[in-house]
């Protein structure tokens, strides 16, 4: 189901298929829809951020997201990644769904000390899990913090590709597409194309790659 939803989002970001509606990709009546939205995070709403998307999100989309936010709030002991991904979904709801700020929860405070403190392999792993936040305008403070570790994220990209961990590699590549100052010798565009050839069959990998291209013009 998550793969299908990710494929639906990727299709919409490519500008293909019917105009995107989250409520058609994930029906509110489906018991698993809230969990799928929670896993996709902000990416569930990514097509609404794309330039070529004309139809605005509707009330049914709002219902699907509200159900997810209500069902899976991060607990007191939630990991930083879990809080950030929830926060990303809240931020995207504010940005892309109808209804004023009062209709959505306030974005929760999310710890960011790890961005500075993590050794680069762990930093890269966490950042890749938060690749859905690499959307225009989302979480600018996190993006700014990651900008100070661009070289380390690039090292994580190299490590992930060499390990053939395409999901981590694609997520990091998507962040690097958003961030300034990526080392030219990384070969990011060729790297993203390479990941597409090797691991693009995975819908979540494909989604990161198409987001990097759609929003930041990087990749094949």
């Amino acid at each position: 189901m998550i793969a299908d939803a990710a494929s639906g989002v990727a299709l919409a970001l490519r500008g293909e298929g019917d105009p995107y509606a989250l409520s058609r990709v994930l029906r509110q009546s489906d018991a698993l829809a809230p969990a799928a939205v929670r896993v996709l995070g902000a990416d569930a709403l990514a097509p609404y951020a794309a330039d070529h998307h004309t139809p605005a999100a509707g009330d049914e989309d709002r219902g699907v997201v509200q159900a997810a936010l209500a069902a899976f709030p991060p607990g007191a002991d939630a990991s930083a990644v879990s809080v950030w991904s929830y926060r990303g979904l809240v931020e995207a709801s504010h940005a892309f769904l109808p209804g004023g700020p009062d209709r959505w929860p306030q974005p929760p405070d999310a710890a960011s000390g790890w961005v500075e403190a993590d050794p680069w392999p762990r930093l890269a792993h966490r950042a890749s899990q938060l690749a859905a936040l690499a959307l225009p305008g989302l979480s600018p403070a996190l993006a700014d913090a990651l900008t100070t570790r661009t070289d380390d994220l690039a090292r994580g990209f190299v490590r992930a590709v060499r390990r053939r961990d395409w999901l981590q590699a694609a997520g990091l590549g998507r962040w690097l597409a958003r961030l300034p100052g990526v080392p030219p010798t990384l070969g990011l565009d060729a790297g993203l194309a390479f990941i597409g050839h090797m691991g693009g069959g995975d819908a979540r990998v494909a989604l990161h790659l198409v987001a990097a291209r759609c929003f930041y013009g990087r990749g094949e």
């Binding site: 403190a117 570790r149 070289d151 690039a154 080392p183 030219p184």
Partner: peptide, 15 residues
């Protein structure tokens, strides 16, 4: 520290 140690990498941008 780890964050500072990324600095040598930035040299490559000027390359």
């Amino acid at each position: 520290g780890p964050a500072r140690a990324t600095a040598p990498g930035r040299e490559s941008e000027a390359a």
